[in-house]
Design a protein around this nucleic acid. Sequence first.
DNA 1: TAAATAGCTAAACAATCGTTTAGCTATGAT
DNA 2: ATCATAGCTAAACGATTGTTTAGCTATTTA
Lengths: 187, 187
Amino acid sequence: MARQKEYKEEEVIKKAMRLFWRNGYGNTSMQQLEKEMGINKFSIYSSFGNKHGVFLESLKCYKAKVNTMFEKFKNNSNGVEDIKQFFYDSVDLCEEEGNEKGCLLTNTYNEFSESNDALVNEQMTSFMGNLKNLFIEKLRMDPSKDQETINKQANYLVLAKHGLVAATRVNTPKEIEDYIEMTFKNI
Amino acid sequence: MARQKEYKEEEVIKKAMRLFWRNGYGNTSMQQLEKEMGINKFSIYSSFGNKHGVFLESLKCYKAKVNTMFEKFKNNSNGVEDIKQFFYDSVDLCEEEGNEKGCLLTNTYNEFSESNDALVNEQMTSFMGNLKNLFIEKLRMDPSKDQETINKQANYLVLAKHGLVAATRVNTPKEIEDYIEMTFKNI
DNA sequence: TAAATAGCTAAACAATCGTTTAGCTATGAT
DNA sequence: ATCATAGCTAAACGATTGTTTAGCTATTTA
């Protein structure tokens, strides 16, 4: 043993995540990462391998936040009301710390959708796409809904969620609340 | 006078637009532009000044498409039904030529939202934000709606439109149709 | 206290970025 | 036919990209 690190990886990766969240992957440089993470390039490379590695670790960090929300969502048992709460929680997560950059996962999906980045794709598909199934589960708790209605409403809610994420960037809290209430008015 | 150009600027800029649409600005290189536009770097610079100029001209080209749709929307006079048709037209525009990259203006807004690019910001604000007013105008055609209802519904429709644009990237035509019908069920 | 070693600093790396330029080609005008 | 000129080709520009490395610093261990 010799010197010990002057930083904690869990802390600097949070800072990296916020930078990627604001700028996206392609528009974030190693110079910016150095400044934002508060450590030298050498330290970044020794801890995370390369820029790509920093990004993947940032995604994991973000997904941990999302996972907490998902767990809460799954563990509740109030049907549609849970979905509505999930919408409100999503807004809180997208807006934390004054951030107004929507959802990092959605942004990443958009930025990498044309590329064939295996690692990023893997990280993405593990989260995108199962949202609809979660909604379907919750909607099934209402015995008065038939299967066709459930499918249509689930699909509707997935796309409504997209609108919501986009909304967190430019709309006021009141407008967002109005949107959510309106969305669930006839569900 | 001497030689005449071997390309038409209106044609090569369309090709540039499609590339920017697919990749975004930052992730598009001059090399890619050369290949996609089918002309040399020199020709690109002599026609459009620089990469930034190519992008601004591409935005104008895209906005021309959108403008056509907006004009149709404004000139009709069937209230809410016009808005619904506008949603369907939006999907057609976002998906033309097998493209699945959402709306170029929305994407550009997202990519440049953290930067302070005066020219791009100008091009953006001239289109974003007035959508709500257009919706309000149409909703006013229904005398049974009071002002508060109109405001809420207009806000809801703006965000629903965001969901729709995101939807064109990953959802089937049937799912998108379901979403639109559901959105207008209680408007 | 001294040797060993892991972390840090800062300079340099090759590759690619957007951009410019020198020289060649082709065409309109005299 | 020839001169002038605008367009094209392709090489090179400096700056910045992500990445590596040599040399110094500080701390643990014996």
